[in-house]
């Protein structure tokens, strides 16, 4: 246990990601005087599921939120290094943040449907982008709800208030809402942490189906979940990336002692 407390001088990062869609390059992030991320280097493969694991406060959510610049909302936050999505530096001064957030969607820990109808929730992203043709909206709503495995449950009550859905349905609605704007990457910040086991299984099934079309990055506290659904896993500790590898390797033959301690449940 004691050996993990020190600096991690030499993280093990698997180098050969052939088709990276997101590249994080020497990223450090500060909240005021507190440093939350230290020199993170990471490449996220396209159309795969990548899981971020690590104990609370290790910076995995912070990293996730900096991938679509939601950390901009925190006034004291400031970064060094850069992040490229499809090759473009998203922290460049002239980069269009609104467009970035359409391309890199986000599903949050606590489901947050808008106080509108189910239909309007899913159509919201298109509407604010200026799409008002009802044929396009109808099609997109159905497609997104099907992709999020919610269509059969809500197709007869699309005009009902979204807040009347159960917790798991609300979370899948939020996934559908994110998919409706056809992002390239979907970020998920502990999407199942507030759900019961059955709802969790539904969401996991949904994620497995989505990876054929989308790149998914998921933060999770649930190691079994990471092992079940992800292709790659990144382990963070105290703001540093410790190890990044294929999930199977990570959970069976971790390269570093710290990783092994964590995934086998010896600390965390």
């Amino acid at each position: 246990m004691s050996e993990i407390r020190g600096e991690i001088d030499d993280p093990f990062v698997v180098a050969e990601i052939e088709n990276p869609i997101v590249e994080v390059d020497k990223l450090s992030l500060y909240y005021g005087d507190t440093q939350a991320l230290y020199d993170v280097d990471l490449a996220i493969p396209e159309r795969e599921v990548t899981a971020f694991i690590g104990p609370s406060g290790c910076g995995k959510s912070t990293l996730l939120r900096s991938l679509n610049r939601l950390n901009d909302l925190v006034e004291s936050a400031r970064i060094e290094g850069n992040v490229r999505v499809s090759g473009a530096d998203i922290y460049a001064p002239d980069y269009d943040v609104i467009d970035l957030r359409r391309r890199v969607g986000m599903v949050f820990q606590k489901s947050n449907p808008f106080p509108k109808s189910i239909y309007e929730n899913v159509a919201y992203g298109l509407r604010i982008a200026g799409e008002n043709r009802s044929s396009v909206l109808d099609e997109s709503v159905e497609k997104s709800l099907r992709a999020a495995a919610l269509w059969d449950e809500v197709k007869d009550r699309l005009k009902d208030n979204a807040l009347g859905l159960s917790g798991g349905q609300q979370q899948r609605l939020c996934i559908a809402r994110t998919l409706a704007v056809e992002p390239e990457v979907v970020l998920m910040d502990e999407p199942c942490s507030a759900l019961d086991p059955i709802a969790t299984v539904r969401i996991e099934e949904t994620i497995s189906e989505l990876k054929n079309d989308y790149t998914i990055v998921i933060v999770t506290h649930n190691l079994q979940q990471a092992a079940r659904i992800s292709d790659y896993t990144a382990f963070f500790y105290l703001g540093r990336l410790v190890e990044f590898n294929q999930t199977q390797q990570m959970f069976t033959q971790p390269h570093l002692k710290q990783t092994e301690d964590y995934v086998t449940g010896r600390f965390g």
């Binding site: 909302l73 957030r101 359409r102 969607g105 986000m106 808008f114 704007v181």
Partner: peptide, 13 residues
């Protein structure tokens, strides 16, 4: 709630 704001911003509002 902050989640609601972030949800809207996350969709490109």
């Amino acid at each position: 709630p902050r989640e609601l704001r972030e949800g809207a911003l996350g969709l490109g509002s």
